[in-house]
Design a protein around this nucleic acid. Structure first.
Lengths: 151, 151
DNA sequence: ATTTTTGCAAACCTTTTGCATGGAA
DNA sequence: TTCCATGCAAAAGGTTTGCAAAAAT
């Protein structure tokens, strides 16, 4: 997960203007531990900096996604959530109870992916892999009974 | 990809009422070769059966998803599209030029997934894997220059 | 006869847009 | 001083809802 300084230098080196609003939004991002929705972000942002308009926030989200400061994750539920980005190619494992999202570094699927792609004759490929389940702490808390099996 | 008869029997065995609208919608699904948006579906449905209301269509989509008659695919672009379902656990490889979606049967990632899940201590997991690239025909057509690299 | 399903239209909710103002470089 | 970024408020866009009528079992 990028630090404030790293996020800042991504913006800076991209030639983007360092406005108060953008810097405030980076500060807001620092405070998120796990995943959050656009609305979570908006809410927290307007608590910390009430003057930030909705349009600015959504434009910042687009920019942050483009620059990798944010990553968007598509949940099984259909909701999109965001997390603060991190370096390099990686995937995520998500707890559907507490919402924790961990990075899986060093994609363990490269070999099999290459095989599939070769077989299908595709080029210029990207892949998305998301794993969703119940993390250890939530298993211990015994909450898994509240969640049915998922197709 | 399920045939009309298979889709019908899924509905039937689920105890759902076989209304004209639902049967018409299955007929519409038969006509799709590849992926389509909810709006594509609505458009085609109201051509083939003008009396079908929007709410009915969206309610049917939910039902079809639940029963596996449809599968929802989240594109890199952020759009959700649908395809007619097929049996068993599988993944998809999507051409970002022509939109073709092929099933990858027999998940080639089981071993590595198990390893990751064990290492992270997760239980009750599901996974989604989507591969997006350019299919052979579209490579030959030379259209890949129109599409920039994707993060 | 009972219960599900439908159609309509309005409501909803998140995201986007146009445009004049303000601020960074 | 130039162009990028912002805020506002309105519009957009896709999806969902409430309800009375219609249809399936």
């Amino acid at each position: 997960m990028y630090t404030y300084q790293e996020m800042l230098s991504v913006l800076n080196s991209g030639g983007y203007r360092l406005t108060d609003q953008r810097l405030s939004l980076l500060r807001v991002l620092e405070t998120f531990g796990g995943s959050f929705s656009a609305l979570d972000f908006e809410k927290k942002a307007s608590e910390m900096e009430p003057s930030i308009g909705r349009a600015t926030l959504f434009r910042a989200i687009d920019l942050f996604l483009e620059r990798g400061i944010l990553e968007k994750i598509h949940r099984q539920s259909g909701d999109d959530v965001y997390i603060v980005g991190s370096k390099g190619h990686h995937h995520h494992i998500i707890c559907r109870v507490c919402g924790e999202i961990r990075d899986i570094d060093a994609c363990p699927f490269e070999r099999e992916l290459e095989e599939v792609i070769r077989k299908e004759g595709f080029s210029s490929t990207i892949h998305r892999i998301e794993i969703e389940g119940i993390c250890e702490s939530c298993q211990i808390r015994g909450t898994e009974g509240n969640y049915g099996p998922i197709a």
